[in-house]
Amino acid sequence: MNQRLGRGINIGNTFEADQSWQSPFDADDFRKIAELGFTHVRVPIKWERDDRSMSSSPYTIDLQFFKTVKSVVDAALNNKLHIIINMHHHNDLMADPQGQKARFLSQWKQISEYFKDYPDSLVFEILNEPHDKLTAGLWNDYYRDALRVIRETNPQRCVLLGVAEWGGTSALKSLTIVPNDNHLILTIHYYNPFQFTHQGAEWVEGSDAWLGTKWNDTQAERQAVIDEFQAAIALSKSKNIPIHIGEFGAYSKADMDSRVKWTRFLSRWFEQQGFSWAYWEWNSGFGIYDPNTKTYRTQLVKALTKDAMPVVQSVN
């Protein structure tokens, strides 16, 4: 399944967004994505929104929203794309894990039941980037409980398991128990060096000071990436669990040459390791497609889908 997922892209700033900043969804984007050579899409979803589900027992997810998600899943499958749906930006769960656990499990019970008869090209991801009060220790229990709920109706569906502390490589040591389940893939997010990938990002305090940070694709820069993934590779081998890179990308305020070098190296290196991956994202601040002009950022598209691994650059 991890090989089938291959190269993917996130439909970001869409179904995980609040109404004030939600981008419209265009099902024809899946045709474009497939034509570019991608083989899966990851669709982040905020089920917690007030207009989508009940905040008190029985925590019912609105049927109309289920139909919306179904139409997205169907559109992906119709374009021969695998599709990952997750739980994203569940802020109440992060702030009050104990108080929100029943809702978290109830929602997974409903999602699992709704999609139980779908083909295995539909993949579930338990939760995006656990953090705040949903500590690493709690996460070890929460993901196992959620997996048990999913397995009641989807015994063989592939499920992506993320890690605590915002989902990065540094938190792998806290993933103390990997369930004995042959249909799990470990998913990791990667945005390092953060001062490069998030320079000028409006939602990151102080990021304007990082403007102008470059990534030159030197041996030292490559080695920093390689070093950060050694624990993940060791865990993958010891637990026989494949790896999916659920998010990686550099924000549009970085210079395009550096973005291309970073994206190209990571894409090819991930593939050399046997990782599947999903670039963040399709058509917003990190995107490879401009929905207003209906044009591609061709250099980034090539970096993801066509460019070969370049010879390492010498230190300037």
Rank of each mutant, 00 (worst) to 15 (best):
residue 108 W to T: 07
residue 103 R to M: 11
residue 89 H to Y: 14
residue 88 H to G: 03
residue 24 P to A: 09
residue 211 L to R: 11
residue 179 P to F: 06
residue 132 D to R: 13
residue 52 R to V: 07
residue 39 T to L: 01
residue 235 L to T: 04
residue 1 M to W: 08
residue 155 P to C: 06
residue 39 T to I: 00
residue 256 M to Q: 14
residue 54 M to L: 13
residue 224 A to L: 12
residue 141 D to G: 11
residue 79 N to Q: 15
residue 13 N to L: 02
residue 138 L to R: 07
residue 297 R to F: 11
residue 270 F to G: 01
residue 57 S to I: 00
residue 15 F to R: 11
residue 234 A to V: 04
residue 47 W to N: 00
residue 98 Q to N: 13
residue 161 L to S: 10
residue 265 F to T: 02
residue 116 K to H: 00
residue 265 F to I: 00
residue 304 L to N: 09
residue 80 K to D: 15
residue 219 Q to N: 10
residue 186 L to K: 09
residue 11 I to Y: 12
residue 139 W to V: 00
residue 92 D to F: 04
residue 120 D to L: 10
residue 140 N to I: 01
residue 230 Q to G: 07
residue 224 A to H: 05
residue 210 W to M: 02
residue 51 D to A: 06
residue 135 T to S: 10
residue 173 K to G: 13
residue 250 A to W: 01
residue 285 G to C: 07
residue 205 E to D: 12
residue 6 G to C: 04
residue 135 T to I: 00
residue 135 T to H: 01
residue 267 S to N: 00
residue 92 D to V: 02
residue 248 F to Q: 07
residue 223 Q to T: 14
residue 45 I to Q: 09
residue 171 A to Q: 06
residue 307 D to H: 07
residue 245 I to H: 08
residue 114 Y to Q: 03
residue 251 Y to M: 04
residue 114 Y to W: 01
residue 91 N to V: 13
residue 73 V to K: 09
residue 175 L to T: 06
residue 34 A to I: 06
residue 38 F to V: 04
residue 14 T to M: 15
residue 292 N to V: 11
residue 152 E to G: 08
residue 110 Q to H: 02
residue 84 I to M: 08
residue 205 E to F: 04
residue 289 Y to S: 01
residue 232 A to Y: 03
residue 212 G to L: 04
residue 294 K to C: 10
residue 277 W to K: 13
residue 310 P to W: 01
residue 283 N to R: 13
residue 169 T to M: 15
residue 150 I to M: 07
residue 280 W to K: 09
residue 27 A to D: 08
residue 278 A to L: 10
residue 307 D to I: 00
residue 36 L to I: 12
residue 59 Y to G: 06
residue 73 V to W: 07
residue 267 S to D: 01
residue 87 M to K: 03
residue 107 Q to Y: 04
residue 208 D to N: 14
residue 201 A to C: 09
residue 231 A to I: 13
residue 45 I to V: 15
residue 21 W to C: 08
residue 281 E to G: 14
residue 296 Y to L: 14
residue 35 E to C: 09
residue 174 S to M: 05
residue 26 D to G: 05
residue 86 N to L: 05
residue 97 P to W: 09
residue 311 V to I: 15
residue 216 N to K: 14
residue 231 A to C: 03
residue 295 T to V: 12
residue 280 W to I: 08
residue 46 K to Q: 11
residue 312 V to L: 15
residue 264 R to Y: 00
residue 13 N to E: 08
residue 38 F to T: 06
residue 294 K to L: 12
residue 109 K to A: 15
residue 212 G to F: 04
residue 180 N to C: 07
residue 273 Q to T: 04
residue 121 S to T: 08
residue 152 E to D: 14
residue 34 A to C: 12
residue 125 E to S: 09
residue 6 G to E: 05
residue 31 R to H: 14
residue 191 Y to A: 03
residue 288 I to F: 05
residue 267 S to H: 00
residue 241 I to Q: 03
residue 7 R to S: 13
residue 243 I to S: 03
residue 244 H to S: 05
residue 230 Q to T: 13
residue 148 R to E: 15
residue 46 K to N: 14
residue 56 S to W: 00
residue 38 F to A: 08
residue 117 D to L: 01
residue 196 F to Y: 07
residue 279 Y to S: 09
residue 21 W to P: 10
residue 276 S to N: 08
residue 115 F to C: 02
residue 172 L to P: 03
residue 67 K to H: 08
residue 298 T to V: 13
residue 119 P to K: 01
residue 123 V to D: 03
residue 21 W to Y: 12
residue 200 G to R: 04
residue 259 R to T: 02
residue 26 D to K: 14
residue 200 G to M: 06
residue 8 G to D: 06
residue 251 Y to P: 05
residue 252 S to V: 06
